[in-house]
Design a protein around this nucleic acid. Sequence first.
DNA 1: CAGAATCCGTTACGATACTG
DNA 2: CAGTATCGTAACGGATTCTG
Lengths: 121, 121
Amino acid sequence: MPIKVRKNRSEAPPPPCALTECMAIIEGAWAPNVIWQLRGGPRRFSELRMDIPPISAKVLSQRLRELEQRGVISRHVLATTPPTVEYRLTPLGSELLPALNAIVEVGHKLKLAGFHAVQRS
Amino acid sequence: MPIKVRKNRSEAPPPPCALTECMAIIEGAWAPNVIWQLRGGPRRFSELRMDIPPISAKVLSQRLRELEQRGVISRHVLATTPPTVEYRLTPLGSELLPALNAIVEVGHKLKLAGFHAVQRS
DNA sequence: CAGAATCCGTTACGATACTG
DNA sequence: CAGTATCGTAACGGATTCTG
């Protein structure tokens, strides 16, 4: 009979995979680093700048605001002179740590395998 | 005594974390999707185009070449008419799956938590 | 079918300078 | 200290057209 049978190929993994939700936060050169640096507890603006070597104040500020807006981190101004600002992960932000952890794990394996990041095209 | 004692803050997680190695591959709007779609077995160019809804041929082609160059996927031309090209994960590419898996997991949790991706600034 | 070529918009990021 | 403002670059991505 002329029924068009499914070919023997692997099927497309069913529906819209939930990659984007998390990637939207993780994406970019610095956002994951910021989250990662906050995993050990609160840190200040200038601390983050030194933790994440060559990040400019502008970009760090942008990412911090963005992450705060998304509810991933929270911002706390301490009444000192000069003013001090601490950032820390929110509970929602902490949910991202397993994913980052897995990414770091893979990174280690890649390094051991002699992998070196290549320029993109 | 005037010794500058370490303050009571959390320390910077020691050395250069291995985030970048993996992120370099994962990064971009489509690369993770491509890898993810290949997790079930080999797939063809046009299949990937349909799996990953609104990706343009140009970008898909770019990402595929890039991923191949990095040893994440392999390209196989089948001698059919019209020609058929299959892509599949290399062993190295499969190493990325745990990380992507973790990302998808988090994505699900975020969706359940009512999280919606927000525009970036 | 599987792409390459071209044009063009958006934006992440860097450098520098300035402020409360 | 913790940013903001401004300028400039490069890479990512979309749309369309063309080819072996």
